[in-house]
Design a protein around this nucleic acid. Structure first.
Lengths: 235, 235
DNA sequence: GCTGCGCTTATTGTATACGATCCTCCCAAC
DNA sequence: GTTGGGAGGATCGTATACAATAAGCGCAGC
């Protein structure tokens, strides 16, 4: 999700961002088909731009493109879920440490605002929005490290995490407990690099621990969709 | 460069792979313009497919797309160069450690073959090919860790590293000294996780140390290209 | 009644056409 | 001689048209 730049009317990018938003907020669930014509008519553009947007999302692994079949919201496997959080556990604590040395009062305020909005959304039952804001917190923390490459990777992982929560999360989503983000913010505000790194690591591990990574996907899908997940009629 | 799957005639992907290959082998240098018409005529396809390929490459950050201007081979900045290698120093030793436990004799042979080919190419003066094979070694090591997510990230970083070598590398490219790769392979073959991780870390640090990251890009380009690098006539 | 084949239809893959934007080069004016 | 403006050309941005593939459905045959 390296796309907060709707600068010079980048239509494909804008469409991709809107679709990504819907995915992050769990309005589009894993497995959903994204027809080119349908998306195009919704946003009032031709298939050309929709294809570009879907291509972009496929590179972020939010959707998978199946030749002559179309685009579908990705359904991460259990293995992929483990991988995503393992890499997050590697990158994000490192980021948090780097961020601690650079956090300004303005940064603190911004992060606090995100946390507040997240809690507001969750209390209002807007779990989708809360989830997006929760991810945004992680991305903003990464941004503080002033390492664009790292930020982009983490943004990707956070986006994929949203799909993982949709598939394997406990329904009443409290994926990021209130205390965790606050503890991280506290460490950052006081420039405590050790604590920031440690809190972030604990937080990531708590996230993966809260998932249901033993059973197959709990998403209610049609029998057809359930069976067509294996393309080449795997043995 | 998550594209070694030229399976079911994926034309855009094939074109992207070919272009990426040329970039990795330094036949296409940073700053070079990739005109849609020109690329299309070379490969005998329409601009549609070329655009898809360029879009893909732009997501891998091998090319940058400038609106109404076209696609250009990316010219990484010094800061980006530092970032890329910092993340590599974080990810690849981790990968090497994981790989050490899983390396089979077949893997060892494959890696050795890559090293041999690399040396052959370098001795033959084919520095471009040697560079590509050197990167391939890193990717194959990552692949041994059996973590796709990590492999994709590292493949991206290796690809970008190739651009960095093109811009900031010492001309007679010995970016990966012969001994380094062999030492890593040795550690892997003997399942010595500590040594593998350590050797990989040293190797990455040696790579960045061998770069010329103090001076501005040494790539000989036209005055026009040199000046148009700053889009908004930056102050 | 069930199975297998062929047609229909919907959707994607690719090419091409047209409009928009930017660059270049020339010419006039100062 | 330099500078400003404008016409021309080249290239990209987007839409649309046609071809190709796959999915769905009905019908015939066993």
């Amino acid at each position: 999700m390296d796309a907060f730049r709707q600068d010079a009317e980048d239509l494909p990018g804008t469409i991709a961002v809107r679709l990504a938003l819907a995915i992050h907020e769990h309005r589009l669930l894993p497995g959903t088909k994204l027809s080119e014509d349908e998306v195009g008519s919704i946003y009032g553009v031709s298939r050309t731009l929709v294809r570009a947007a879907l291509l972009q999302l496929s590179h972020e692994q939010l959707v998978v493109l199946r030749r002559n079949r179309g685009a579908f919201v990705t359904q991460p496997t259990i293995k992929e879920a483990h991988e995503v959080f393992e890499v997050r556990a590697l990158l994000e604590p490192h980021c948090a440490r780097a961020a601690a040395a650079r956090t300004t009062p303005a940064d603190t305020a911004r992060l606090q605002a995100i946390i507040d909005h997240e809690h507001l959304a969750r209390d209002a039952g807007e779990n989708g929005i809360a989830m997006r804001l929760s991810g945004l917190f992680h991305i903003e923390v990464a941004r503080l490290s002033d390492q664009r490459t790292l930020v982009e990777f983490i943004a990707h992982l956070v986006a994929r995490s949203s799909l993982i929560f949709a598939l394997y999360g406990d329904q009443e989503g409290a994926p990021c407990s209130k205390a965790s983000h606050h503890a991280i913010l506290h460490a950052l505000a006081y420039h405590d690099a050790d604590a920031a790194e440690d809190q972030m690591r604990r937080h990531i591990l708590a996230l993966v621990a809260a998932l249901n990574l033993r059973n197959p996907p709990a998403a209610p899908q049609t029998l057809r969709e359930a069976l067509e997940t294996s393309p080449g009629l795997a043995p």
